[in-house]
């Protein structure tokens, strides 16, 4: 395996009004590294959806990003309630978001589908009562 640059972001579960900080920082960093704009856009949106999910559904978590020459890997880890039925959660329109979260514009049930849409590989590893780990990979085509 080739060398990678590694970045760690803690995602605060308390403040879901201003959530998105880690994604914004990731985007800045990817820009500095000179990745193609479309690759940055896909990664930033996937990261934001994952970050928001950790905040609104899992009480926060952490994100680790590895940047390789040919790909970027994002790993999101939380110790929230877990997802009982991953297949159901992946369906467009499925959401358990509360009314207060919906009033902020979330809860369309499109976040996980977007993460899949914008990444080349995605896997969800979730245990009810223990938490969720989501790994996403985007290949960089120069």
């Amino acid at each position: 395996m080739s060398e990678s640059l590694n970045f760690h972001y803690d995602v605060d579960g308390e403040n879901f009004v201003s959530a998105g900080q880690a994604s914004v920082e990731l985007k800045k960093m990817l820009r500095r590294l000179g990745l193609p704009p479309d690759t940055i856009r896909r990664l930033s949106i996937a990261m934001y959806e994952g970050e928001i999910n950790m905040v609104i559904h899992a009480g926060g978590g952490a994100a680790d990003v590895e940047v390789y020459e040919d790909k970027v890997v994002i790993r999101l880890v939380d110790h929230g309630p877990g997802i009982a039925d991953v297949e159901l959660a992946m369906q467009e329109g499925y959401s358990t978001a509360t009314d207060s979260v919906r009033s902020l514009g979330f809860g369309a049930g499109m976040g996980l589908p977007n993460m899949k849409r914008y990444t080349d590989e995605m896997s969800i590893d979730s245990v009810v009562g223990e938490g969720t780990t989501i790994t996403m990979t985007v290949y960089i085509n120069q």
Partner: peptide, 15 residues
């Protein structure tokens, strides 16, 4: 018509 901090974040991230 959505105008909160997330609107700004989404606009930024989606370019």
């Amino acid at each position: 018509i959505m105008s909160n901090v997330n609107t700004v974040a989404v606009a930024s991230l989606s370019d």
